[in-house]
Amino acid sequence: MSQLEIKDLHVAIGDKPIVRGFTLTIRRGEVHAIMGPNGTGKSTLAKAVAGHPDYTITGGDVLLDGKSILTHEADERARAGLFLAFQYPSDIPGVSIANFLRAAVQARLAEGEELDATAYYQRLYAKMDLLKIDRKFTSRSVNDGFSGGEKKRCEILQMAMLEPKFALMDETDSGLDIDALRIVADGVNALRAAAHPPGILLITHYQRLLDYIVPDHVHVMWDGRIVKSGDKSLALELEAKGYDWVKKEFAAA
């Protein structure tokens, strides 16, 4: 079974340890939600797993289908099937969504293999329709001048086009209006229903997203590690009680 294993991972930014012993295994087809207070290291974890060069891995390992990927560059990890939907996606002035995604799709082909442009556009348009993204967006520069919600939708479009084995979705719901939230959730659920669904790590602050994308597991991250795990009822409990009780419980433990 294909899986992404994060084992006792420690990540530092400069000298500052941020992720401190994070362990989680995600199998393909599973959705794991991660919740936790601001600044607790969720984005750092996601970017470190994706291979951000500024984040130093000071301990532990990340394995994709049993092989460590820590020595691989971010692009190799991506081509191996990892995808990060950014909390704050960068804009790329002058590069259209169509050209950007085309380059990304092309990068996954074997050397010498040419992309079938017609098929590519058909697929792109189909995914855009699914996510209710206006076709005019294909010629717009990636994220350049996009509203917060448009950026998030564009992230999901990319995910849908690149069909990763594992997706790390960092607060994809923040900035989405109620309708957009449903559209994005439908898009993700469509991927889950596919023949080879991805494993998903879903970082969120809001229980509402989990009404639409129902997680198999919910974890609470605190101070750089998972301190509590449960099923989707845990999210409801957090929503009702806040994080204080987790803190207390954790402190008592």
């Binding site: 970017k47 994706a50 291979g51 951000h52 060069p53 500024d54 560059e73 971010a74 692009d75 990890r77 991506a78 081509r79 995808f83 990060l84 950014f86 996606p89 960068s90 804009d91 790329i92 002035p93 002058g94 590069v95 050209n99 950007f100 995604l101 380059a103 990304a104 990068a107 996954r108 520069s141 990319q158 690149l162």
Partner: peptide, 28 residues
């Protein structure tokens, strides 16, 4: 911008390809 390059790399483009795209975008 480094974040921009990382963003592109996280989509599977090599650092060189990412740079090219950034430059081509700049003069587009």
């Amino acid at each position: 911008n480094e974040e921009m390059i990382f963003y592109m790399q996280s989509r599977g483009l090599t650092e060189g390809q990412a740079m090219s795209l950034a430059v081509n975008g700049f003069i587009n």
